[in-house]
Design a binder for these strands. Structure first.
Lengths: 295, 295
DNA sequence: CACTATTACGTGAGCCGTAAAAATC
DNA sequence: GATTTTTACGGCTCACGTAATAGTG
């Protein structure tokens, strides 16, 4: 296996465009094409296919992409180590913004202190986290996931319920737990129509035949809490959110809790630094529950 | 980094002889020499040095050797997987014969059942186990070790004491524990002069000013027990040995117990199958103690 | 028609083997 | 002086770029 082929394929697989990949590699477009063709012939399987005007990776192409990234990473680390004597690796963790803010608060600084490796963080929604891990861009991902994926190893991380946040003076604040029906007629602070959290709210309130109004449409827990504080309405948010002073949170047991998974690539090899990050993450699995809810 | 260079260096590093390595690679000797030279120039450090008539790897050469073996392994696995769709990896475990026979009895079959990877076993004395792990030939080693090694991660595995084995009818069999002085005047079944176990026996009995005779000089716990059964004398063996019927074992607390370590390469990346083997080994750490001593 | 993938082909850098020199016991 | 490493050099392969062709919305 020619490592030059792999290097080229890695760049190509990230853009799926021969013209631009060739530019990045400082070779001509046909030269790159020939390389990918030879690599494909050597392996014996097609690595990409046409999808109309665009190209997309086959299953084999996806696996090879992650493998090529691993190899390239390992080679660069080894080269630096041999040349300079120092060991400077990177570990990449992909997760949602809220996950970083509230679930992983403790883990990141602990890793920084304990490990010599640099931590790179990537944020994105569920599908981005998954594709980050599958493509090898991220070594570890933390995201809500229901179905399991063949090429991923997922380990249960933590389970997060839903809460309703409202001004402490709000009549519903006197209840300990809220039934869905209490939301009848309320104004809710919700994410935009296409976000999964909004879809969930729509579906559940719809099937419980609750009438409600949109108070504001905003994106992100922080903003939702901000508007709740301004008295715009009730916000249904993840249990992990830190609730600002003046607001009260009440559990909403009928809403489904969200199972977060720690995912990594099956068949991906794990460097010690990656294993360390994983271990730290696991040991702080439930630490978000000890954070002060009020701030 | 040209992977062809690495492949060649891997073969060369195993023989440290250009002539024979070139034969194995089916290229001419000068061609191989040029490759290694270019690799060395690319990295910027010498990879080997002359030691009289022979060559030996530098520190960088050693690291590169293990790295090259990892890469080659991973590439082969990935190729097979892409071509055939099946995943056929190997994991290599290096340890002493006695270790395999008595300490790891349970772990090996458990791994065979639980993992799809093939297990390759290598046997050798302490220094062979260590060099196996350092060179990447073995992924995991289990061996007695006192001092720690910079390029190895060693985790305490189990601690094994020493026992004296004798015919049940022997006068010393009536004692529960044996003091060293009880060995005064006895005939002992011992390993040859150069073996570490023999050296230990010599030193301890010498400093306790005990007189004793060599009954037989044999190599290996099995043979020592065999001759003990034939009444040739007393055998001082590791506590883990299974004692045949008709023989009695008595603890020898004054003899130092041996600390076994599980070792792996620092900075080596760990495939899932390797992690699984490690986990199984650890979960059976002390299981040798539950084996029946008599058989 | 604009854009990109794919094929064809002549040229040059680099690898290989042969041959010769140097080193080491 | 026998064995092995190291250097030198001519031939040849193969990877590259240029140019031309095919496919697609």
């Amino acid at each position: 296996m020619n490592s030059d082929w792999l290097e080229s394929f890695l760049i190509f697989s990230d853009t799926l465009n021969f013209t631009r990949a060739a530019e990045r590699l400082h070779i001509s477009q046909p030269a790159l094409h020939v390389k990918i063709t030879k690599l494909s012939e050597f392996i014996g399987k097609p690595l990409y296919q046409k999808s109309g005007r665009n190209l997309q990776l086959t299953a084999e192409g996806l696996q090879l992409q992650a493998f090529a990234r691993d190899q390239s990473e390992q080679t660069n680390n080894m080269l630096k180590k041999l040349r300079s004597g120092t060991n400077s690796e990177e570990v990449c963790l992909s997760a949602g913004e809220g996950t970083f803010l509230y679930l992983l608060g403790k883990s990141v600084p602990v890793f920084k202190k304990r490990s010599s490796a640099k931590l790179r963080a990537r944020t994105g929604n569920q599908s981005k986290v998954i594709s980050d891990v599958l493509s090898g861009t991220a070594h570890i991902g933390i995201t809500p996931m229901e179905t399991s994926h063949e090429s991923l190893i997922s380990s249960p991380y933590t389970r997060v319920g839903q809460i309703v946040v409202m001004p402490t003076t709000h009549p519903l604040a006197s209840k300990r737990k809220l039934k869905i029906e209490y939301l009848q007629g309320q104004s809710l602070i919700v994410p935009p129509e296409d976000k999964p959290h909004r879809i969930l709210i729509n579906r559940l309130l719809m099937s419980a035949q609750i009438d409600w109004q949109v108070a504001v449409e905003v994106n992100g827990w922080e903003l939702m809490l901000h508007f709740a504080k301004q008295g715009m309405g009730l916000a249904i948010v993840n249990e992990y959110c830190k609730v600002p002073k003046g607001l009260t949170a009440r559990a909403l047991p009928e809403f489904p809790s969200i199972q977060f998974q720690l995912i990594k690539r099956r068949f991906g090899s794990t460097r010690p630094a990656i294993a360390e990050l994983e271990e730290i993450l696991f040991s702080h699995k439930e630490s978000w529950k000890n954070e002060h809810r009020q701030r």
